[in-house]
Simulated assay, not measured.
Amino acid sequence: MRHKARGVVARKKGAPVEVLDILVPDPGPGEAVVAVQACGVCHTDLHYREGGIGSEFPYLLGHEAAGVVEAVGPDVGNVRPGDFVVLNWRAVCGRCRACRRGRSQYCFDTRNARRPMTLEDGTPLTAALGIGAFADKTLVAAGQCTKVDHESDPAVVGLLGCGVMAGIGAAVNTAPVRLGDTVAVIGCGGVGCAAVAGADFSGARQVIAVDLDSRKLAWAEQLGATDLVNARHADPVEAIRTLTGGVGADVVIDAVGRPETFQQAFYARDLAGTVVLVGVPGPEMDLDLPLIDVFSRGGAIKSSWYGDCLPERDFPALVELHEQGGIDLDAFVTERIALGEVETAFDRMNNGEVLRSVVVL
């Protein structure tokens, strides 16, 4: 049986998204249908629309989501109907070589639902990041559902499903930031501001926020930045070095993901410091870095995938931390919008007007 729902669909590369009727199958083995309550508007969804991730159009967009499990298929033991969950795109397999080595954050065989959701005419939809949550309901692998406190605000905790978790995790899990560290974050959109919050929570004594936009720097300050650098008016490397007594930061997080910002991060760290790349570069980008400079510096260069998170471990812990006042997740929700306003939200995101627009269903 298939259930009718509304969903935001990108029919072809670069075309405006549309709200269309879609059909959601009953869950099969290891699957769950989730009634979506809220879903954040992320740059990744725009990358899908623009063809920057793949070409398997039409796409059902949306992935930073929370909702209530409506039905489960056979062989599902982690959730049941009525559970309030945050959706994730890392349903680990437990069997690949990464999982067997105890490094499930690098799982090479993450799970998604096997059967596609479709348009009414039967055209299969590709669900963004295996989720597709700009919709009244969606079909996912049960492992993509993480139970959290049912009294949580879906618009707030759903953001852990991608950008907020990526930024916090880059600081807390990947770096990891230690008590007393100096930290610089280059790029203060949603992911960068989350990295600022994660660094502050981890006990950094100094958190330097770098961006071209004064609005984003103000958001970073609200979330724990101690120093602000507007890269329109100052060289970020020189500014970070000056603010850290001439030596550079212990941890520099590149939340932009461009060759120029990565070079800034590389040269702005202390000689034994750590560079973390969490901003996602485009496939056409190349890095030109003298190998002797890499050799001449110790420390580490790390990539952070999804904040190196394990959803079952990290989502409930961060929700509890938020409820106790340890991290202000509410600050990431700039506006709450309807399903038909996603295209406008993309424009606002591109213009740097919001940390996150959140679709509320």
Rank of each mutant, 00 (worst) to 15 (best):
A133E: 10
G298M: 10
R356W: 05
D308T: 04
G187R: 11
T244M: 07
R269L: 06
Q264P: 00
A65V: 06
P124F: 08
V247Q: 12
H233K: 13
S55R: 14
V196R: 07
L243A: 06
S214Q: 15
G161I: 03
D288R: 10
A135L: 04
A10P: 12
V164F: 05
V76T: 13
D149N: 08
G67D: 01
A98H: 14
S104T: 13
A317L: 14
G163N: 04
G190S: 10
G248R: 01
V68P: 07
G224H: 09
Q206Y: 03
C145W: 00
Y48Q: 02
D213S: 09
A5N: 06
N78F: 02
R2C: 06
M285Q: 15
S303V: 15
C193D: 08
C93K: 05
K13Q: 14
D45G: 12
A175H: 03
T123V: 11
W305C: 12
R258A: 15
M349V: 05
D328F: 05
P176G: 10
G273I: 03
A35K: 10
L129F: 03
C93F: 14
G169M: 04
V210G: 08
V275R: 07
A142C: 04
D211S: 08
G40K: 06
L228C: 07
N230H: 01
W89T: 00
Q37P: 03
V185K: 09
D83Q: 05
D330P: 01
L318I: 15
W219R: 02
V86L: 05
A317D: 11
D21N: 14
T182F: 04
W305N: 13
D21I: 06
A166N: 10
G167Y: 01
E31M: 01
G198W: 04
G163I: 06
A35F: 01
V164I: 15
T123E: 02
D26F: 13
A239Q: 02
Q37E: 15
L318Y: 09
G307A: 07
E70D: 07
R115Y: 10
L87A: 03
D26N: 15
T242N: 14
T138M: 01
G30V: 03
R101E: 15
G273L: 00
V196W: 08
A91C: 11
K147A: 09
A38F: 00
D347Y: 00
V177I: 10
V69S: 08
H322Y: 02
